[in-house]
């Protein structure tokens, strides 16, 4: 690692030394697009060698950014309180997929300058009406004197609930391993 960094630093200092214009040059402003000169390839005088070594490539690969969030390691308890999704959910009547960041797709939507708050559960697969039936008593207990206002969008696989119940629903889903 350290060797690569020093190597790169060496190249950078070398190029700057060899091309003072790169380092400290007045900006060229041509009068218009048409009168400006065509771009030419800049001659690179730095000496470098090309190698194809899988052993060295491993260290380069380690520096490349990952394209997906990898599957997290299975631990009994996580410090952040986050819980992974259960493994055996194929026999459930419904399923709530995790997002690409392995989080629960439960969101708070604030409209009307903060006066309207809606909780939205997304990525619901399977029998969405069964999920509504199971979720309803839990939310009705929370809202006891008030009525529960809940809307099921089977077509898009979403449930919209009036009010901020994000943490309550995340807790409820976590209890059921979703």
């Amino acid at each position: 690692m350290a060797s690569i960094r020093t190597y790169l630093q060496r190249i950078i200092t070398k190029t700057c030394f060899m091309h003072p214009r790169v380092y400290n040059s007045p900006q060229i402003r041509n009068s218009s697009f048409h009168s400006s000169k065509f771009l030419v390839d800049v001659e690179v005088n730095t000496k470098y060698e090309t190698t194809k070594n899988p052993e060295e490539w491993k260290y380069v690969e380690r520096l490349l950014p990952v394209t997906t969030v990898p599957e997290p390691k299975k631990l009994p308890v996580y410090a952040s309180g986050w819980k992974p999704q259960g493994d055996d959910l194929k026999d459930r009547p419904y399923f709530i997929a995790r997002t690409r960041n392995h989080m629960m797709p439960v969101y708070l939507e604030i409209r009307q300058r903060g006066t309207a708050r809606h909780t939205i559960i997304k990525k619901i697969q399977g029998d969405i009406w069964q999920l509504e039936k199971d979720l309803r008593p839990f939310l009705e207990d929370l809202l006891k004197p008030k009525n529960l206002r809940l809307q099921v969008n089977e077509f898009a696989g979403k449930i919209c609930i009036n009010g901020d119940h994000v943490n309550a629903i995340k807790y409820w889903l976590g209890e059921r391993n979703f």
């Binding site: 950014p65 990952v66 394209t67 997906t68 690409r100």
Partner: peptide, 8 residues
């Protein structure tokens, strides 16, 4: 699938 799953 890469577009649906990529992190960035």
């Amino acid at each position: 699938l890469t577009h649906l799953h990529k992190n960035n």
